[in-house]
């Protein structure tokens, strides 16, 4: 069974159509990239998968392990293994990053009927993962994303992803705001998590991220649907020729 199946998905926000009959199937162990111009609906897709309110699904379905998730609350989806790395991670003043991680990981484990991590085990795991992402241990004591630089925020997202061990990770423009060194660290963090049981949906504007996180499948999105699918070479072609030709294809 496919890990994720999106079937003829139509989505509106405030009466405005954003997704327009989108189909996408992702198998376990694969990395899919979605590229497309601004306004093509890439971020909407990420939010709808994660269950953000305000988006109205008017038609179609989203199946995770063959079961529709559209009626599930965002936290239920998270417990089922769906993770979204935010394009703009949200600041939570007064809540230490370590506290946040522990609270959230244990909440997910509880929902799945698994035991909680013991504190020392958990601290150790977080510190190890943080070190690999070149995250200063002091950052774990700071409030979630508060005062983090753009690069720190993205690394913190990957740290969270590492701790949650999701089955499907959606990365929404994780490369935006990263310099080349940070991009490398973040990509390595993602690559370390690649496994036969886990799939990734990488949303990006630019081909450069895909030099580091090499996808199995590349999709081009335009006007709310997928207009072309190919191998990793498709990303290079897009880089060279731009999106204009696909805008017409979507008409």
């Amino acid at each position: 069974m496919s890990l994720l199946q999106i079937k003829n998905l139509h989505v509106e926000i405030d009466g405005k159509k954003i997704l327009n009959g989108l189909d996408l199937t992702i198998e376990k162990g694969t990395v899919h990239a979605i590229m497309g111009p601004n306004g093509s609906g890439k971020s909407t897709l990420a939010y709808v998968l994660a269950g953000k309110a305000d988006y109205e699904v008017t038609e179609g379905d989203v199946l995770l392990d063959g079961r529709s998730i559209l009626d599930m609350a965002p936290d239920e989806r998270a417990a089922k293994g769906l993770f979204l790395a935010f394009q703009y991670p949200v600041e939570i003043p007064g809540v230490a990053t370590m506290t946040f991680l522990r609270t959230a990981v244990n909440a997910q484990r509880k929902k799945r009927g698994e035991g909680e991590y013991s504190t020392p085990d958990f601290l150790k795991k977080v510190r190890e993962a943080a070190a690999k992402l070149e995250i200063d241990p002091d950052m774990l004591k700071r409030s979630v994303n508060v005062g983090f630089s753009g690069g720190e925020k993205k690394r913190a997202e990957i740290l969270q992803m590492t701790m949650f061990e999701p089955r499907l990770a959606v990365l929404d423009e994780t490369d935006s705001g990263l310099d080349i060194d940070a991009l490398k660290v973040v990509s390595e963090g993602v690559n370390r998590l690649r496994s036969p049981e886990r799939a990734f949906l990488v949303i990006t504007h630019y081909q450069r991220l895909l030099d580091h996180i090499v996808p199995d499948v590349v999709h081009v999105m335009s006007r709310g649907r997928i207009v072309k699918t190919g191998g990793k070479e498709l990303a290079l072609e897009l880089e060279a020729r731009g999106y204009a030709q696909y805008a017409e294809a979507a008409e």
């Binding site: 269950g51 953000k52 609350a73 965002p74 936290d75 939570i92 007064g94 809540v95 609270t103 949650f164």
Partner: peptide
């Protein structure tokens, strides 16, 4: 803020409590 917390696995009430405690 609430959506971010919920995406990480917290229920609406857990998320509110966490934000308020912060």
């Amino acid at each position: 803020m609430l959506f971010y917390c919920r995406q990480r696995g917290l229920s609406a009430e857990e998320a509110t409590a966490l934000v308020v405690n912060g």
